[in-house]
């Protein structure tokens, strides 16, 4: 896909089944290739990180959002602009810690898991951990080190999907973007 020419904010429609099935095929292949679920989670996170460090450029170019002044603003941009743009859903931002360095993104529906039912032998698999990596990678590119994890997951019987994000520190010097 060459989109160099017109990076506008027009949203192209994409078939959600194709997207969901593609991600499903990726995860199941990883499950075949690696022995345990922790290793799969790690790989998904790593892939997400590599997506994130690239995606942030696309995001900044297309969304034309300015610099965020605090973490709350960042949270709003992630929920209302980024998730809307790339996944077509708008999570709500809640559960702020008193210090204002930690919050939750609540997704009513997660397009990645549309048809998925976790089999019993994959208890520790965090199916959507790619998202954690994407968030971590993209924020790292804008000098923010964050910790991202799943607190609730509809695949494990919870009512909603909750992504917990914790601000760790501002990255002062520009680290070279490695592929880990």
């Amino acid at each position: 896909m060459s989109r160099q020419s017109n990076r506008t904010s027009d949203s192209k429609k994409m078939n959600s089944e194709l997207f969901t099935l593609t991600y499903g095929a990726l995860v199941t292949q990883l499950c075949k290739d690696y022995e345990n679920d922790e290793e799969v989670n790690k790989q998904l996170d790593k892939m997400g990180y590599n997506i994130g460090v690239r995606l942030i450029e696309d995001f900044l170019a297309r969304s034309s959002v300015g610099r965020c002044h605090d973490f709350r603003e960042t949270a709003d941009v992630i929920a209302k602009v980024a998730f809307k743009m790339y996944l077509g859903v708008t999570p709500s931002v809640t559960n702020w810690s008193p210090a204002g360095d930690e919050f939750s993104l609540i997704l009513e529906s997660n397009p990645l898991v549309d048809f998925v039912e976790l089999p019993d032998n994959h208890n520790n698999l965090v199916y959507s951990s790619l998202l954690c990596g994407v968030l971590r990678g993209s924020l790292e590119m804008v000098q923010m080190a964050v910790d991202v994890r799943f607190a609730q997951d509809t695949l494990r019987g919870d009512n909603v999907t909750e992504i917990r994000m914790k601000f760790i520190k501002r990255i002062e010097e520009n680290l070279p973007a490695g592929d880990e």
């Binding site: 192209k12 429609k13 994409m14 959600s16 089944e17 997207f19 790339y86 996944l87 077509g88 397009p111």
Partner: peptide
């Protein structure tokens, strides 16, 4: 990969 249309509603 921008907007997902949910066809099965």
């Amino acid at each position: 990969m921008t907007c997902l249309c949910f066809l099965c509603v």
